[in-house]
């Protein structure tokens, strides 16, 4: 089923691009290994289909046939930061039997929004990317502990986008990687300072 939907997605992108000028890219993730500040928790993460396969699409006069695949970079991002945050983190494919696995909590990242700005649209003439996630943290039985709304912002370097103008993809990928870097940093920090998480940590039963 997943394979079929992927083929359909590729086919639809192919059809879109066949109709004229297009802009198809897959984002790449290049961020540092976080300093490990692991909480002694046994956690699980669930990536839903939308997160794994997310493709940003837009088609208008200014952005003709845009298809920016960010799904794989998102998974790479969470796979990089979560082991630095918790002593145990397992990826689960199904939420229904999570309760039997004796996890402290389940993390479910959800992409809420992603926006791009091009140099001609910005005062400082740079590429910009904004990305917003809702990070749902729930108990294995499905009861919500908290939802953290986290935003990341990235831009291409000042006064260098004139080079990137020659290569639209380069500037946009740079800004998006910076946004990933920023949002990942904010997820780590938010988890450490979120009052709901602090309260849950203080009251949760020790396994």
């Amino acid at each position: 089923m997943l394979k079929l939907s992927r083929y359909l997605l590729i086919l639809s992108i192919g059809l879109v691009t066949a109709c004229g000028q297009s802009f198809i890219v897959e984002t790449k993730l290049d961020i540092p290994q976080p300093v490990s500040t692991q909480l002694p928790l046994r956690m699980a993460v669930f990536y839903d289909h939308e997160l794994r396969e997310f493709v940003y699409t837009e088609n208008n006069e200014d952005r003709m046939n845009w298809a920016i695949s960010i799904g794989p970079s998102q998974i790479q991002l969470f796979d990089l930061i979560l082991p630095a945050m918790f002593t145990t983190i397992n990826r689960i494919e199904d939420l229904s039997n999570a309760e039997e696995q004796n996890y402290d909590a389940i993390i479910i990242p959800e992409i809420k929004d992603i926006q791009f700005a091009l140099p001609y649209e910005t005062r400082s003439k740079v590429h910009e990317t904004w990305i917003k996630y809702a990070i749902h943290v729930q108990q294995p039985d499905g009861v919500e502990i908290t939802t953290m709304n986290v935003i990341g912002y990235g831009k291409s370097p000042n006064k260098t986008s004139i080079q990137f103008l020659l290569d639209e993809k380069k500037g946009l990928l740079y800004a998006t990687n910076q946004a990933f870097r920023d949002v990942a940093a904010n997820i780590i920090i938010s988890f450490q300072s979120n009052p709901d998480i602090q309260q849950w940590l203080a009251t949760k039963p020790v396994h």
Binding site: V35, D182, I188
Partner: peptide, 12 residues
């Protein structure tokens, strides 16, 4: 900044 990631980013 890379070595201290994510504690010395612009926003953190």
């Amino acid at each position: 900044i890379d070595a201290m990631y994510p504690y010395f980013e612009a926003s953190t």
